[in-house]
Design a protein around this nucleic acid. Sequence first.
DNA 1: TTGAAAGCGCTAACAA
DNA 2: TTGTTAGCGCTTTCAA
Lengths: 346, 346
Amino acid sequence: MNTIKKDVTIYDIAQQIGVSPATVSRALNNKPFISEKTKTKIFKAAKELGYRHNNFASNLRKQKSHTIGIIIHELKSNFTTLVLAGIEKAATLAGYDLIIAHSSESVEKEIANANNLFHKRVDGVIASLSFETETLDHFEPYYDKNIPVIFFDRVEEDSPTTKVIIDNYKSGYIATKHLIDQGCQRILLIAGSQKRNVYYQRYKGYADALRDHQMDMAKEQVFINDLSEAAVEKAVDQILKMKPLPDAAFITNDFTAAVFMKKIKEKGLRIPEDIAVVGFNNDAISRMVEPELTTINYPGFQVGEVAATHLINHLQGKANLKDMSTIIIHSELIIRKSSIKSKKNP
Amino acid sequence: MNTIKKDVTIYDIAQQIGVSPATVSRALNNKPFISEKTKTKIFKAAKELGYRHNNFASNLRKQKSHTIGIIIHELKSNFTTLVLAGIEKAATLAGYDLIIAHSSESVEKEIANANNLFHKRVDGVIASLSFETETLDHFEPYYDKNIPVIFFDRVEEDSPTTKVIIDNYKSGYIATKHLIDQGCQRILLIAGSQKRNVYYQRYKGYADALRDHQMDMAKEQVFINDLSEAAVEKAVDQILKMKPLPDAAFITNDFTAAVFMKKIKEKGLRIPEDIAVVGFNNDAISRMVEPELTTINYPGFQVGEVAATHLINHLQGKANLKDMSTIIIHSELIIRKSSIKSKKNP
DNA sequence: TTGAAAGCGCTAACAA
DNA sequence: TTGTTAGCGCTTTCAA
């Protein structure tokens, strides 16, 4: 239990069965031009001796890390977790390791993470930008060295980068239109920083839906904040003072929507009768609240899987990222009770 | 933008300023016996040339990976996320990388993960066992090579391993006692696999609290299942047929408790009047449900931080894991509205 | 305080 | 189909 054995190398295997280390390496890596017989012998010996492949030596020699770096803004969200699970599935399948770095929504940390992963020599990066990020300068070193970077969710729309996103504009539009179809007249929007494409596009979709239905978009109907619990609380205080009261709210994040619902119910308002609510993401919480929350399904797992698969295909030369600079994942409205005003029009 | 520059090595730096690579290595690693002057020159040159430390070469040479492996049963839980954040904080601080592997509650996958991380040559492991796991045989290779393993949350209690846990027995006891103090007479328990210490200890605490207060623990009051939504649904169906109906439920997981609350409210029962509910974990969802859920605060972040810190201290020779085989993190009851029956006895 | 030299384990170009 | 050999970039022992 306490004798530390020396590690077994391909030299040990080679010696054991009387071939060269090169042959062992080739066999173990399933390279062509090895006789089945030697191969079997090598695998058998490897197993017997308890051989472990040494990634460091291999990586050093091959100048590849076989590692993908992930830069995200927050670990603690349902959506992020799903994306990570999707990335992990694709990466594991292809034998890539992951290094996960998160910025807690701070640019400085995001920059530090980008540098750090660069120094760790990741083969590629999958990233979603922080609330604060304004430029992509910190990804320059990657481009200089031809290390591929794929962005997802929070991206820089106008940049010539590869991105995996949903159609946030359309999602915002259909969410709002759904509320209009329910007969709502005064529809609030609560959204995050307009610097970020996701919130800006959802806002635009909302605004255009209103305009297309000849509805006013009063300034005070739109709340832009950090979507935190405190921010919602503040917004609710303001909303309750509005006359007439709004009759619907489109809140671009399910957790925030859940907080909102809780607060306004505490104030004695009914959902959906007084205020209909639509969220965004289809997080687990959307089915836990009462009434169940109408929301936009944002398939995070698929986003992660697609991003990772494309990155890996690129790394393996099976595809080129430049051939496909924006990938749109399908999103859709899921109608639940929180937004259904009329019986006939579900 | 597309010219790939050759990587800068310590040889380049050495040549640049006319010293040997050994000196450069020593300077960059802050080893003693280097004149301040040379050191400054070396750091300056390193920066100018855009030097990146090569972990692979360094790891290969030092026979250390500077990586910690994490084996968990599920990524998609609030608690796990907190633990990971805690581990990440401690690891980042000490310059360790993480590899995260999850088993989706399957033993086979857990074994595969253990083997995989072993082959990746992690310096140490932090693990929480799957629902199904019955032996620790798959960690044998680690012990054989003196690679430290720390377990948290779901551990093998009788094994001579280092663990970071809370007092699940006490937590189960105080949760149940709280319900008894509220005047509840027929208290249900919904818990997970009794193979796992966490659920078994919570069960024991529950049972002992009942016994200490001269209360019966009828067989049908105890539901052992996988805590899934489907399992709760089934349990609720059975519960509604009970006569008399139970007046309280201790559910050893907040998400499950939230599902339970939703289902019984749909059936027209009131919380806490008809059935008082206590959950476990203090997940974010516990404050989102209505009424807010009384629960046991299980400080996941701290668990992760403590586990990682101890592991790293051990790796760095600052402490020895053998000196401290079980670390108990403080947990406590948080009383909210879901369990308060009487006005005078909050 | 610095340098020379060996070697960590693997892969790949070249030769056989 | 297999072997020989060099070298990836770093750290460390020994010597100066």
